[in-house]
Design a protein around this nucleic acid. Structure first.
Lengths: 218, 218
DNA sequence: ATGAAAAAGGGGAAAATTCCCCTTGCTATA
DNA sequence: TATAGCAAGGGGAATTTTCCCCTTTTTCAT
């Protein structure tokens, strides 16, 4: 009996076509089976919270990063708090450093891109079950790189962030100052210190930075 | 024999995990089978061009829109020119109007989002084979909407686009003028006419528009 | 309690942006 | 062939942005 037990996998991904297909792929592995599919983090958490599912068997969770309603990161945060033993592999299409770091910080045991081959994917499942973690070279590289740059990271205060967001509009600094109930000169001070930090020279540069770093969304 | 013949499907998608999984799903349909997988448009076209593949059986192509090397739209353009009889269903994660319109203009018989259910997906395959096309309400809505707004659409000339791209940087207009070998005054003319068209008042507005409409990428 | 940052604000000026109105030369077309 | 349209370019001025150096007030850790 024991030797024949399959590892129970839960998929959380809003792309139904993907998750339903992935289920076939995983079920084709002799030692894994998909037991549940959820379309976003909220559905998944609600399921976990139901009385009758409190001691459900879960060997592995495949968690998509980009989802509506409740995304991968928020779900990961909840899991870290409430189900710290669950093993999670994060799935994503893009390798955005910050997200990868955040997911791992919150306990993800692996991070796979969706262009992974089925072979590597299988290795990842297997390795996470057996060793507890699986990281590709890409992810390891990012982790190492992050340690180097840890101190160099830029932080903004609330007011600065507020200013940056407002600067990403057609408003003049004077209008922004009025909105924030500050003197235009104070705003000019914010601007100048932010320009220095970011090594930029124009408001255009600020807008580009803000969008690139998702301080504002387009 | 004839009654047992399965429709031959080719998948072109760079997300290996997705395409390999999708293969399982499609093969689970009694009347479809996946014969080939390609990771981008170039691989696919090269395959089609090989001598021995000239009269290969292809009943349906599932073409991802976002791919590296050669994307879905470029591949569609090639197919329209060289294999106009092939039936293509475009696959994408996002419902960007412009891309949908372009794909359909170039002969796509269907446009599906990746969060489609397997049931609808199967219907789509079946319907495209039988009726020649399949469009969800979402796509139909966009098509109808597009007919309304056909005339309202904004067009830019090459030089204007070039200017807009350069304006999305920390360069001054004078520097842009130099780069484009035009007088600063001419650039100012471009700027003013574009501002009027877009109903904006500042260069910030232009940058936001350009990013939103993917004239430049972040 | 006090000295050192940090936040808020200011003067003044150069540079860049925005705006309006104008000239010239080319070309498409009725 | 006349003319309307458009691309290229210019004059000039009001605003806005950017920069540098300065003062006052608040906060905060020792």
């Amino acid at each position: 009996m024991k030797t024949n037990r399959k590892n129970k996998v839960i998929i959380v991904d809003d792309h139904l076509l993907f998750s339903q297909s992935l289920k076939f792929l995983i079920n084709s592995f002799s030692d894994f089976e998909v037991t549940h599919n959820f379309g976003n983090g909220k559905e998944f958490i609600q399921f976990l919270q139901e009385e009758e599912n409190l001691d459900i068997e879960v060997d592995l969770i495949l968690l998509d990063v980009n989802m509506p309603i409740l995304d991968g990161l928020s779900t990961m945060v909840w899991l870290k708090e409430n189900r710290p033993d669950y093993k999670v592999i994060a799935l994503s299409v893009n390798n955005e450093e910050d997200i990868i770091i955040q997911m791992i910080k919150n306990g993800a045991k692996g991070y796979l891109l969706k262009d992974t081959t089925p072979q590597i994917f299988y290795d990842a499942l297997k390795t996470v079950i057996e060793k507890g973690y699986f990281f590709t070279e890409m992810v390891s590289g990012i982790l190492v790189n992050r340690i180097d740059n840890e101190d160099k990271k830029l932080e903004f205060k609330e007011k600065e962030l507020d200013f940056i967001k407002r600067a990403c509009s057609e408003k003049t600094y004077k209008e922004i100052a009025d909105e924030m109930c500050l003197s235009p000169k104070t705003i000019d001070g914010y601007r100048e210190s932010i320009f220095a930090k970011l090594e930029i020279k124009t408001r255009i540069g600020l807008v580009l930075y803000a969008i690139k770093n998702k301080i504002v969304c387009v």
